[in-house]
């Protein structure tokens, strides 16, 4: 028996909107630790890793580990029917073939339940080792989204370079080139507007902007985004989910020839 009650149901709505276009089907894993998902896009270039820790739920019951295969597009459709202030409860029976999403309005005057069929998914799980990253950039998530969107109007790929001077986002296309440099900025009034660059070694990597733009659909989840870079490693773009966990996107770099 599984029963997860999330007072801030909008978090789950936002998570689904962030990942549904990147991954079609995925297994949600439920354990004492929390509600999690790891899935790759169909071309095995990008990976989504979600964790919602059990402590973040108002009620969390998971009698035994359960893996539930879901079509993320269909799950997103159902969660879209929840109000932004609704409390969302996810329910499933051990060995059952469906999952129920229950939506309660804040004053309990509307209660809806949506039942969705589960599916069998053969998913490959990748082991992601803890790594020391050569450069970690923390910046406003809206700024990161703006940069990716702007650069994708010029080119298909972005070169992200971190040096002592700052972080540079560059692209090149048929009409010309673009370079955007952000310097460290901790002197802002609000911490969510800061840009913080931690660099061990200068690093420069190339990525497909199509994927970066897809990741930025998670912007409503967090005011800041963390971009972790190391040569020879996929970049990690992380959105923290308040008090609960994270949504991380891994993207394999392109090889310059």
């Amino acid at each position: 028996m599984l029963e997860l009650r999330l007072v801030q149901g909008s978090l789950l709505k936002k998570v689904m909107e962030s990942i549904k276009d990147l991954v079609n089907d995925a297994n949600f894993d439920c354990s004492a630790t929390g509600f999690s998902l790891q899935a790759m896009d169909s071309s095995h270039v990008a990976l989504v890793s979600l964790l919602l820790r059990s402590e973040g739920f108002e009620h969390y019951r998971c009698d035994r580990n359960l893996s539930m295969g879901m079509n993320l597009g269909n799950m997103a459709k159902m969660l879209k029917c929840a109000g932004n202030d609704d409390i969302v409860t996810v329910k499933a029976d051990d060995g059952g073939d469906c999952v129920t999403f229950m939506f309660e309005s804040p004053n309990q005057d509307k209660i809806a339940d949506f039942e969705m069929k589960l599916m069998d998914i053969d998913s490959e799980h990748l082991g992601i080792p803890e790594a020391e990253y050569e450069a970690i950039v923390r910046m406003p998530s809206a700024e990161f989204a703006r940069i990716c969107k702007d650069l994708s109007t010029i080119g298909d790929t972005v070169v992200i370079s971190v040096t002592k001077e700052g972080v540079k986002f560059s692209t090149r296309g048929d009409i010309g080139t673009a370079n955007i440099v952000l310097r460290q900025n901790t002197s802002v009034d609000k911490p969510e507007e800061a840009t913080i660059i931690e660099m061990e070694t200068p690093v420069s990597l190339t990525f497909a902007l199509r994927y970066m733009n897809s990741f930025t659909k998670a912007t409503p989840l967090a005011s800041q985004v963390t971009v972790s870079l190391s040569s020879e490693l996929p970049v990690v773009v992380e959105y923290k989910i308040a008090e609960m966990g994270y949504l991380r996107f891994y993207l394999a770099p392109k090889i310059e020839e």
Binding site: V45, P234, A252, I255
Partner: peptide, 14 residues
């Protein structure tokens, strides 16, 4: 010219 790496080049299946 650039070509796209896949994730399996970095992370091993478990």
């Amino acid at each position: 010219k650039s070509s796209q790496n896949r994730l399996e080049s970095f992370f091993k299946p478990v």
